[in-house]
């Protein structure tokens, strides 16, 4: 979503993005003239008249699970967004019985929060796991 019109979105997709992604952008390129939606999401830059790089993960109930906002010159890390979605999905499927520690990715160990784990995380999880 940006403040550009849907017509500019079409031109950008058809003339440039479709040369980077086969078949063009598959998802909806939304238009937010005046930044009205960006304003309620807290990411619209009134001075510049543009949206900043806000990214929101919304779960199937319509709740925001996470967000990230960057200034324009720095691009996002798509893999990190996918990792977060996978983590939120795991937690949701476990109905909250599991939690994903720092550096978690699919296949790595999760934590099962409960009275027995209090003060014992050091026995099952080491800080090097946050970096591998």
């Amino acid at each position: 979503m940006s403040v550009d019109s849907v017509f500019v979105h079409k031109m950008w997709n058809d003339n440039e993005l479709s040369k980077m992604v086969k078949g063009g952008v598959p998802y909806a390129m939304m238009s937010d003239a005046g930044g009205k939606v960006g304003t309620i999401y807290g990411i619209y830059d009134e001075v510049g008249g543009v949206e900043t790089r806000g990214r929101f993960i919304i779960d199937p109930d319509g709740n925001v699970q996470g967000y990230e906002v960057l200034t324009p010159p720095v691009g996002r890390n798509v893999n990190e967004t996918l990792r977060q979605i996978q983590a939120f999905q795991l937690v949701r499927n476990s109905k909250g019985s599991e939690a994903t520690p720092s550096g978690w990715k699919p296949g790595k160990m999760t934590l099962k929060p409960g009275p027995e784990l209090v003060g014992k995380v050091w026995e099952v999880w080491t800080t090097d796991k946050a970096f591998d």
């Binding site: 979503m1 550009d4 790089r53």
Partner: peptide
Amino acid sequence: KLSDYLGKWVVLCFYPGDFTFV
């Protein structure tokens, strides 16, 4: 409409503008 996507995971991305390089 955002609420049409209830039941699915949604990634909502804002960006400064079309043709702005990044």
